[in-house]
Every structure is written in structure tokens, then in C-alpha cells.
Write a protein that binds this DNA or RNA. Structure first.
Lengths: 103, 103
DNA sequence: ATCACCGGTAAGGAATTTCTTACCTATTAT
DNA sequence: ATAATAGGTAAGAAATTCCTTACCGGTGAT
């Protein structure tokens, strides 16, 4: 049982691309799979990972299943990277100061 | 050659913990490995992943190697999650409005 | 009723990850 | 010079990932 971890879920470029598509609105699995050079079951399996991480929710509509984005778990990622913001800001500041000294 | 991907590098809880430690300042491998119930080579291998992702830099000092954080690649992660901020904010707003209607 | 479509699950294989122990070099200490 | 310390790399095992094909149950169309 490899826990539904959001960091793990977004580690895959395919899954990030799926989320990016879903940011444009809910989609059927068929539509989601279309742009990928991958079998449809493979996409289904990626969707399962996203579902278990809480990043997507499915809604049955007729014989289709519409997946919609649930971005809330991404807050954990944003919060974590946020702790590092000061480091790259400091880096940028030092670089700017260095250039000013020279120029 | 499994490209040095930052999303992949931070997918591991161990590697995130290593970065968290390094946020407190540069450390030798010995010190970095101490808190983990893992062999030292295992930590070395995690450090390699972080190094290839550009998240840490090593500096030789005597017979030690000091690793220091380089947070810059994390900007890519922060930027990516940033695109989703409006979604979880919208979610929070809708929830708030719902509660106000009821209360 | 039958057929087509949507999409999930199962089984299996190749590749990757993540650990271990063993070993090696470089540097410092005695 | 010899011994101890720091830490990278190699080889191999176990677990996991990520794809494939085959198959299945629902739902809608004819």
C-alpha cells in the first residue's frame, strides 16, 4: 500500500500534463487519453494515482467518467517550496549586488 | 540516463528531509546521514540524485565534503504549483460563501 | 436484443528505484 | 609509516513503477 502521496503523484510528467489539461475544465478519460502516445489503460492507471492523491475526482455521467481537478493537495507542495523561497530570493539578491559592484 | 528532474528528486521523503536539514546550513555527509536509519552509502546515493537535480552543491573541505542547499531549481516547482493557486483559492471562497449562506 | 463505446481491472514483463554489503581512494592523526 | 576517518562507487537483491495486452461490466444506439 504505497500511500497516496502528492509529491509522488506529481513526479510524473504524464500526470502533471494530465493535471494541466484538467485545469482547463473537466474531461472524459477518452479525451484525456487522446493527446498521449500511450494506451488508454495506462492513462487510467495514472488517473488512479492522481485520484488516490486526491488531485482529481471522478463524476459518472452516462457511460463516461468525467474527471475534474481538485488542486487542494497542491497546497502542501506550495507550502513546502515556500519555505525555500527566501533562499532563491537571497541568491538573486546577491547576484544582483555582485553585478552592481562590477557595473 | 534518467534526467536530473527536480520533481523526481523531491518525490522522496528522505530527500526532502535532507533538503530541510540543509536549509539550516551546510553539512558534511556524516552529519547528514546521522539522523537516518539508513546506511551511509544510501544517503550518498540520495545526495547524488539531489546533486544531479541541481538542488545541492558539494564543496570539498579537508577529507569531508560539505553539501549546501541550492534552492533555485525549486522555483520551477513553485511556479508550477502557482498556476493552480487560483483553484484552491476559488475552492476556499466557495466553501466560505456556502457557510455564510447557512449561518 | 445486439452491437458499439467508455473505461476500469488483471496479469505480466521490462526498467527503475532503493536499499544492502564490500571495496576503494583521499585525507588526517599518531 | 600506519591507522583511522570521510565518503564515493560497484554489485546485487527486493520492491516498485509503468507500460502492454486481454478481459470485464455498464451504458447508449440501432
Amino acid at each position: 500500500m504505497p500511500g497516496p502521496d502528492v509529491f509522488d503523484a506529481i513526479a510524473s510528467p504524464v500526470r502533471r500534463a494530465l493535471l494541466d489539461v484538467l485545469a482547463g475544465g473537466a474531461r472524459s478519460v477518452h479525451d484525456l487519453a487522446a493527446p498521449f502516445e500511450m494506451s488508454r489503460p495506462a492513462v487510467s492507471q495514472h488517473l488512479r494515482v492522481l485520484r488516490e492523491a486526491g488531485l482529481v475526482a471522478e463524476e459518472r455521467v452516462g457511460r463516461e467518467r468525467h474527471y475534474r481537478l481538485d488542486a487542494r493537495p497542491l497546497r502542501a507542495v506550495a507550502d513546502w517550496t515556500g519555505h525555500y523561497e527566501r533562499f532563491w530570493l537571497r541568491h538573486a539578491r546577491l547576484l544582483r549586488e555582485l553585478l552592481e559592484e562590477e557595473g
